[in-house]
Design a protein around this nucleic acid. Structure first.
Lengths: 108, 108
DNA sequence: CGGAATCCTAAGCGATACTG
DNA sequence: CAGTATCGCTTAGGATTCCG
């Protein structure tokens, strides 16, 4: 069982619960990239420096399971799959952009 | 060398760089707790559910090295040590609170 | 192209006991 | 009280290969 339980249904939702979802190494970078609009798998892989196939797949699945993004498949040859932020996902953007700006300001 | 390098001086500061500093399991929860004011080590340990001595020490050191909080020692018996957010650290609060609120809204 | 399946390792993390 | 010092995981994360 490599996959993360899509939130084990308690009703507390602390900061820790949020971080369980988007606290991984790649989640926020992915969301940040996707804020510019829908993207294909390969585009994402190229846009996010340092990530590899396995981690990208894994994070995308997690975020899909958590309703942060959607996955659309097009039966083309070769196959096309597009990822898009949901409204829920988009509402994470202010936080993430804010973190990013903090970095710009405080990390030389 | 268990400690994290207090930022290896490049000049790019991406989101990843921010997460290198506060992306760990406990950093944001600690900052969040400290937003209420300075606290002693033991208070922190009690306030943050699930953390243990080792991880608390480790994160506090990291954050101190990154200028997010300060550590004040008082030569009392028994010893007293207080941790306080720096201005730099406080500027992370909006992001963190925003993440927290997102959790309140979207994680049942 | 978009993954799935393997294999593997570093390090993040946890529990506990001990010390000034 | 405020930490160190060990020890031992587990698992997140990485590299690579293969498949429809």
């Amino acid at each position: 069982m490599e996959n993360k339980n899509a939130k084990k249904s308690e009703h507390k939702c602390s900061l820790k619960d949020v971080l369980d979802i988007i606290g991984g190494k790649w989640a926020m970078p992915i969301i940040y990239i996707l804020s510019k609009g829908k993207m294909r798998f390969k585009e994402l892989e190229r846009s996010i420096e340092g990530i590899n196939t396995r981690m990208l797949v894994k994070e995308l699945k997690n975020m899909e399971a958590n309703g942060i993004l959607t996955r659309e498949i097009f039966a083309t040859v070769p196959p096309t799959v597009e990822y898009t932020l949901t409204e829920k996902g988009k509402k994470l953007l202010p936080s993430i952009e804010s973190l990013y700006k903090w970095g710009q300001e405080f990390i030389a």
